[in-house]
Design a binder for these strands. Structure first.
Lengths: 145, 145
DNA sequence: GAATAAAAAGACATCCAAGTCTTTTATTTG
DNA sequence: CAAATAAAAGACTTGGATGTCTTTTTATTC
């Protein structure tokens, strides 16, 4: 469904959000350990997100990644689009270049229903809500059993 | 959403179905041209499907790919699983190894709703229905505008 | 200002999906 | 049986996603 980059990215950003609530900035090493993801790869992903202003970062001692006030209303869909683009929401399920309601592939209409639901679901969920689920112990971010 | 292999595979099998209704067997060259897919790659995909008995094939003159009576009730979901496996229906959206209703990732429940709809949609659609849409001119299989 | 700490940048490596091509095998037809 | 035809098998190449590591830049602290 999503790329590995996106999977790690979502987990990392949700984790950062759980810590930013307390004003903490997090280093890549701890983030990667917490979400059980490759450290350098996670760094690359987070740096790209910081460059796009989806999250924030600071260098040097006491530096790290965090989410500041004007970023904290981030919706899950915005994060996904920032990483993977909108292909999953707009591309044809059968890979047709010119597939639309007026020139549909054989499953265009059925897929539209599923995709609209996906888009609605991802639009309604904020990263903050996901972080809250983790903080309250109702959800997990790591791979461990 | 699906791999390229799966996209080409679905298009190819739907096209084969449109022809098998008339008892015709189709060669790879014509199939690939009809769905605008790479010829040798399409051959590889169809050979794998034939090996799994999802479709049928015959060698030599008058040979080609076709769908016989006991294969014609094929559902779209069966074709997808034969090519891509069931990862899309069962894997965690965030890539967690141990994600379940009792140990969920933060979007497990919301995703389940979307995925269940996807699975239902794909289970209800038969390849024959999709082929009918193409035959009746209501849908297309090629990339052209 | 020197030491330290952390992200930023970017080079490099690895893996797998995607795609290509050649050779072999099976079937049909004259 | 010989020629022709088409799938089957499998070797090979390519490209992009994934992953690793080193060097550079920036900020903090003493």
């Amino acid at each position: 469904m999503f790329s590995k980059t996106c999977e790690y990215g979502i987990r990392a950003v949700v984790y950062i959000m759980t810590q930013s609530r307390q004003g903490k900035k997090m280093g890549v090493k701890e983030i990667a350990a917490e979400i059980d993801a490759p450290e350098f790869f996670t760094a690359k992903i987070l740096q790209a997100l910081a460059k796009k202003n989806v999250i924030s970062s600071g260098k040097g001692p006491n530096g790290g990644f965090y989410i500041d006030k004007d970023q904290e209303d981030l919706k899950l869909i915005d994060l996904i689009i920032a990483i993977d683009g909108d292909r999953i929401f707009t591309g044809c399920a059968l890979g047709l270049k010119y597939c639309s309601s007026s020139n549909p592939c054989p499953i265009h209409n059925e897929f539209k229903v599923v995709r609209d639901l996906l888009e609605k679901t991802l639009s309604e969920k904020s990263i903050k809500e996901l972080a809250q689920e983790v903080v309250s112990g109702n959800a997990t971010l790591a791979r461990f059993a």
